[in-house]
């Protein structure tokens, strides 16, 4: 029990440290936001903003996925390049590092979403019929994306060409979130009846990704 308490303290310390650092070094966050904005503008311009809900929800998730790639890929590598990763790993417990990073990634993805979803809806002149479903779907999707993204970022730390590698590795393992998220987002936009089973499936998959990331990270 004692070790668990210590670990929580470490997680909080790491999240807070990452928050301060990302406010002072805004590049990753700014790149992620601008990527999402650029992609949204490009799509909206090229389609004159007239897109049916099914395609629209797919576009939204594709934007979130690749923007996350731009912002999350460097989670561990930035520290590895700066030489702080060995120090962090020495002084903190491995699981605390993983969960600290995961929470930080989730927080940055949530801030990305808070910025890009309203912008996206305005530029495509779309309305949300079921706001609660929209928020739930986004949150569940982002949790899974953070868990898988954090482990993937850890895997690509010592790889070359990681900018291209990260989305390649991340996409297959997040597909079980991606597919239900798109159909649920469509239902949230149109107000049509939705498959509650998909929400449960997303929750289960999120839980599995977090657990698997936690177990597998110890082997890295």
């Amino acid at each position: 029990m004692k070790s668990f308490v210590c670990r929580c303290e470490q997680v909080v310390a790491i999240v807070r440290k990452d928050f301060v650092v990302s406010l002072r070094r805004r590049a990753a966050l700014a790149a992620m936001m601008m990527f999402a904005l650029t992609a949204t503008a490009a799509l909206s311009l090229s389609t004159s903003g007239v897109v049916e809900p099914k395609i629209l929800s797919a576009l939204l998730w594709v934007i979130i996925f690749f923007a996350a790639g731009a912002g999350v890929a460097g989670t561990f590598d930035d520290e590895a390049q700066a030489g702080t990763l060995p120090t962090l790993k020495l002084y903190a417990d491995a699981q605390a590092v993983l969960f600290g990073k995961m929470i930080h990634v989730l927080a940055s993805l949530i801030s990305l979403t808070v910025f890009i979803v309203p912008t996206f809806l305005i530029l495509f002149d779309a309305d949300v019929a079921d706001g609660l479903l929209m928020v739930a779907t986004l949150l569940l999707g982002l949790i899974g994306l953070s868990a898988a993204g954090t482990l993937t970022a850890a895997l690509t730390t010592s790889a070359v060409a990681k900018g291209g590698l990260f989305p390649i590795l991340l996409f297959p393992v997040t597909l079980p979130i991606f597919l239900p998220a798109i159909s649920l987002t469509e239902a949230a936009l149109t107000g049509a009846a939705f498959d509650g089973g998909s929400l449960v499936m997303m929750m289960m998959f999120d839980a599995m990704l977090v657990t698997a990331a936690s177990i597998l990270y110890d082997y890295l």
């Binding site: 440290k17 301060v20 650092v21 002072r24 070094r25 700066a82 030489g83 702080t84 060995p86 120090t87 020495l90």
Partner: peptide
Amino acid sequence: TPEMKLYGAL
């Protein structure tokens, strides 16, 4: 050690 660095942004 030489390879263990501290946070430049802190």
